[in-house]
Design a protein around this nucleic acid. Structure first.
Lengths: 148, 148
DNA sequence: AATCAATCATTGATAGGTCACACAATTCAT
DNA sequence: ATGAATTGTGTGACCTATCAATGATTGATT
């Protein structure tokens, strides 16, 4: 990605490096909570109890990853998992009281962090950035569909 | 990152998802060549033989990761590694003829792909996107520095 | 000259991701 | 009603990343 000879190359390269640095910043700032785990807890916090399957789709990682994350979060006492009585395949995931408290705090922490990253960027610039990222994302998705 | 309540949250969330989808598109399109490996070969292609250490810094991954990638690329016959005679600690990495041929082809393939991802975006929009990503990146880097 | 510090590469432990496969429960077709 | 597909979850194998510790080599200090 480095040694980009074209504008588009350079943009793609930056998307990758920005994400990488962002993830590292996130990890050090949030005392070890990974961005995926934050996502899991955040979904449960805002939406309420969720089937494992739906949680997996919302967070956007593999089934296997979700299974393992939830197992760990359960042993840490942040979430509970219960089989559904109507459909014995599905598992309902919910926050414990402790988990609810912790994710509320983490959310606050993350909000401060993300605000700090945009202090010197005008709101209209932020909006345009978001819009451009959206365009890029739909292009990527379109490309991926035509591949399959 | 999902369930963003603020503009900044939403931007960061998009950076992450765009990168993720980009990496997956890249992988499927480039017959299994990961973006890191592309980076390694691309650096060698444009810059020439490099010390392993400098290659590592350019690509921006850990020492360990570079060691393992290079080991694999060597067994695939794409690169060579030779100890430096003057300084027996360093290893010089270079492309083989086969590697040179392959990376040239991959570069072409990638160029087509990245062009396709920006067909519907005006050049001035691309420039602004790049600029905004740069701003964000320097903010992240600044934040990481103040942390340590 | 001997030792101590710095540099470069490697290795092991650990974490997170994918894919492929397995298994149980449910739903659908005929 | 029963056999076949589908769905939800769990597990194993593998890949890539990090960090920490190790080893080897060089350079610097005394």
């Amino acid at each position: 990605m480095r040694d980009a000879c074209s504008l588009s190359d350079e943009i793609l390269y930056h998307v990758i490096t920005v994400q990488k640095e962002l993830a590292q910043l996130f990890d050090t700032e949030m005392d070890g909570l990974s961005s995926t785990r934050f996502d899991i807890l955040s979904n449960l916090h805002h939406v309420g109890p969720l089937r494992q399957r739906e949680l997996q789709q919302r967070v956007g990682v593999d089934h296997a990853a979700i299974t393992r994350h939830l197992k760990q979060l359960e042993t840490q006492g942040l979430i509970t998992r219960e089989r559904c009585l109507q459909d014995n395949r599905v598992i309902f995931v919910d926050l414990t009281d402790d988990g609810r408290e912790r994710i509320a705090h983490w959310t606050e922490q993350k909000k401060c962090l993300s605000d700090r990253l945009f202090v010197n960027m005008k709101v209209e610039d932020q909006q345009q950035l978001l819009e451009l990222l959206n365009t890029l994302q739909t292009n990527i998705q379109h490309e991926r569909k035509t591949l399959i």
